[in-house]
Nucleic acid binder design. Structure first.
Lengths: 190, 190
DNA sequence: TCTTCTCCATACGGTAGCGTATGGAGAAGT
DNA sequence: ACTTCTCCATACGCTACCGTATGGAGAAGA
């Protein structure tokens, strides 16, 4: 197999599937899932369609790859980042601070959630939402809620997160001091 | 002016701008703002593009008209429906019950908020969000919160509403009894 | 009746993007 | 050195949609 070994130096002459997927994810952040087009991305990467159709079967496969990358960042990475903190209340606050803080990922989230009519998007979103709500549910259980109540609280907290995601697309939070504290207080109120 | 008077009978041979705008709004609910295309809508209405370009200047004008219709339904109509109820706590619960209940409008909302990268969509969404948050802010003031706190609570409540809107696209609420009561309790907790 | 205006059909050119077919340069194997 | 394989460029046909140009049927006005 005459494959070029990627090597560790920065300049790689050959593109990989991951490079394409990341470029597609960036396109989603800019113009939504529907705006993912092969030829514009190719010219951004400095190549032509010929490259794309060697790495991928068609456009849907590219979108799917991009969504899988997002899924990984949105669940595994985020949850792993909170493993160090064990106190449930702190964890909730850190989670909200972390997820509502990173600006670039918000464009992606909002664009992806706004395209759930696409069945490919739907399945990924369902998995991500389920994982996140399960994570939140454990927090509320640790906070002393009973299973049914913890489940409702998790849903409320997750919905609140999603809503802030959408809101911040138009209204950048205005950096009001103590807002997240108030938010955590409301969500954990007895 | 040889214009045909619309008359009051149902069968109108001539189409109006409103019919086109409503059809476009239905298209938004199905496939998002980007999916609004002149020719498919025309064939749905049983006419051709010739009709469209007589009523509208171009596609953007159609999208704008559809968004204006949504804006009206999303603010004026909803708020007017709650005028009868004066108790702030009941009003909040009625608002959530009402807005989280109508199934068809959710598709629209989610699709529109998922396309805020479009500047035309952005301006409309900003107006709608401002009006809704102002409405909620008044409720929380009536509930005894101070201005700054009421503003934060209004934002939280609105974000929660938006989040549930998104969530229900994939997870149909599961009809858990008492969920909205729990939601209202959380939002109005001291 | 004859003209005028409204509303729409038809026909046309143009662009953006998808997917395929084919060739070719260059590295990897042998 | 010769072949094989990887990665990509070029070129092509196809579809969907936009916007325009033009004509025409039919109601309204005069």
């Amino acid at each position: 197999m005459g494959m070029v070994k990627p090597g560790k130096d920065a300049r790689e002459s050959h593109l990989s599937r991951e490079v394409w997927a990341d470029a597609a994810l960036a396109a989603i952040a800019r113009g939504g899932v529907d705006s993912v087009a092969v030829e514009p991305i190719a010219s951004l990467l400095g190549v032509t369609k010929g490259s794309f159709y060697w790495h991928f079967k068609n456009r849907s496969e590219l979108v799917e790859a991009a969504l899988h990358r997002w899924e990984h960042n949105a669940t595994v990475v985020v949850i792993a980042a909170l493993e160090s903190n064990t106190d449930p209340s702190d964890r909730l606050k850190d989670l909200l601070t972390y997820t509502l803080g990173s600006l670039s990922s918000k464009q992606n989230e909002n664009a992806i959630f706004g395209a759930v009519n696409d069945p490919i998007v739907l399945t990924v979103v369902e998995r991500v939402s389920a994982a996140r709500q399960a994570f939140l549910e454990r927090i509320f259980v640790q906070l002393g809620h009973r299973p049914a109540a913890a489940r409702m609280r998790a849903r409320i907290a997750y919905a609140t997160y999603l809503g802030h995601l959408t809101l911040q697309m138009t209204d950048p939070l205005a950096a009001s001091v103590g807002y997240i504290d108030e938010l955590v207080a409301v969500l954990t109120a007895e």
